[in-house]
């Protein structure tokens, strides 16, 4: 008897024109772990995240999350199943404030009626207060207090990345997908990020699947890693083992001459 899998991808394939971006990719993420996807540029790491969050429609394969096949859902249904994500090139609502952006992370949890909301009465009021309390906790956690009421277009890039992370957390996911969270951050910001990622796992109990190029970050915080090249899995194991794998070394550095 096999225990029920928390999250797994089986035989995922997708083709863009003549390019086979993913070929029979299978991987499993253990609950409560931080799992990294690594590989050279164009290996298909972001494509996997896009297939999971249904931005792309995979040609074949399944994505199973908590016993349910989520690979046939519509893109807007994914968040309600407990999967939220961030993007490599920040996708925020740029004319809204930091606060409103994070509140939108809880949008799928709004349960009040049109009239109730318009009058802002009873249940709507209680819900809004609950939401804002939760958002304030996240703001405190990610040190966003100073930016709370500024529009996204007026805050620095590194902070925007944190807002995106905050918005993904506001959805209270069970699985968090991070696409190159450290890209564009300086050394200090990357260190903060490493602590936050560990805290998200420890304190919030959220499982994390991330695409990352910064090998130091991967070695420091991740429990497992899967390496890719040309849309196929090269190696799987602890980050320390994966980087020593001869196939992985070859993919990064080329063949020994």
């Amino acid at each position: 008897m096999r225990e029920r899998q928390f999250f797994s991808v089986q035989n995922l394939s997708i083709r863009f024109g003549g390019i086979q971006a993913l070929k029979d990719v299978s991987l499993e993420v253990k609950p409560g772990s931080i799992h990294a996807l690594i590989g050279p540029n164009g290996a298909g790491k972001t494509t996997i995240l896009n297939c999971i969050s249904r931005v792309y429609k995979a040609d074949g394969g399944t994505v199973v999350f908590k016993g349910e096949d989520v690979s046939r859902l519509k893109p807007h249904q994914v968040v309600s199943r407990g999967i939220s994500r961030t993007f490599q090139n920040i996708e925020l609502f740029s004319n809204m404030t930091v606060m409103d952006n994070i509140l939108l992370g809880r949008h799928s949890k709004r349960q009040t009626s049109l009239l109730n909301d318009a009058l802002f009465w009873g249940k709507s009021q209680r819900q809004e207060m609950q939401f804002r309390e939760r958002v304030e906790e996240i703001i405190d956690f990610l040190d966003l207090q100073a930016y709370r009421n500024l529009p996204i277009s007026r805050i620095p890039y590194g902070v925007q990345k944190n807002v995106e992370l905050a918005r993904a957390l506001a959805a209270e996911p069970d699985l968090l997908l991070l696409d190159e969270p450290s890209s564009g951050l300086n050394v200090e910001e990357t260190q903060d990020l490493a602590f936050w990622i560990e805290d998200i796992k420890e304190d919030f109990g959220i499982t994390i699947l991330l695409v990352e190029h910064d090998m130091r970050l991967v070695m420091d915080v991740c429990d497992a890693a899967t390496a890719f090249n040309y849309g196929s899995v090269l190696a799987y194991g602890t980050p320390a083992d994966v980087v020593k794998d001869p196939e992985v070394v070859k993919a990064y550095l080329g063949e020994e001459g």
């Binding site: 969050s53 249904r54 519509k74 807007h76 996708e91 740029s94 009040t112 909301d117 318009a118 959805a171």
Partner: peptide, 28 residues
Amino acid sequence: FFFNRTKMGISIEATSQNQLAAFLMGIG
């Protein structure tokens, strides 16, 4: 009131600013 207070109003506002992100917030 509709656009600033209600769920559908906020969904419309979010969609007008970023469709991709709107999908990820669970907005149809």
